[in-house]
Amino acid sequence: TVKFKYKGEEKQVDISKIKKVWRVGKMISFTYDEGGGKTGRGAVSEKDAPKELLQ
């Protein structure tokens, strides 16, 4: 599970739902399947990112 803040809201998403991951400076950005055909997005700092996300 990845915990992150998006627009001031605390969120979390299961690693299995993450589609795409990329690095922006010291942040790790990602998109994930929100269900219902929607794609969500989020970002975590490199130090807070789970190891599975960095692979």
Rank of each mutant, 00 (worst) to 15 (best):
T1N: 07
T1W: 12
V2D: 01
V2S: 01
V2F: 10
K3R: 13
K3I: 12
F4I: 05
F4R: 01
F4S: 03
K5N: 11
K5R: 12
K5P: 05
Y6H: 11
K7A: 10
G8E: 04
G8D: 06
E9W: 06
E9S: 07
E9M: 12
E10L: 12
K11D: 02
K11Y: 12
Q12W: 12
V13S: 02
V13F: 03
D14M: 12
I15H: 03
I15W: 05
S16Q: 10
S16D: 10
S16Y: 08
K17N: 10
I18L: 08
I18C: 02
I18M: 05
I18T: 02
K19I: 14
K19E: 08
K20G: 07
K20D: 09
K20R: 11
V21F: 07
V21E: 01
V21N: 02
V21Y: 06
W22M: 06
R23M: 08
R23P: 04
R23C: 05
V24T: 14
V24C: 15
G25R: 04
G25C: 06
K26M: 11
K26V: 12
K26R: 12
M27R: 07
M27I: 12
M27G: 03
M27C: 14
I28A: 01
I28T: 01
S29T: 14
S29V: 15
S29Y: 15
S29L: 15
S29Q: 15
S29F: 15
F30N: 00
F30G: 00
F30Q: 00
Y32F: 13
Y32W: 09
Y32G: 00
D33H: 05
D33T: 06
D33R: 03
D33I: 06
E34N: 08
G35E: 11
G35T: 05
G36H: 13
G36V: 07
G37Q: 05
G37T: 04
K38F: 07
K38E: 07
T39E: 11
T39D: 05
T39F: 13
G42K: 01
A43G: 06
V44C: 06
K47A: 13
K47N: 09
A49W: 10
A49S: 05
P50N: 04
P50C: 04
P50Q: 04
P50V: 05
K51V: 14
E52P: 07
E52H: 09
E52I: 11
L53F: 06
L53W: 09
L53V: 04
L53E: 00
L53Q: 01
L53Y: 01
L54Y: 06
L54P: 02
L54T: 09
L54D: 02
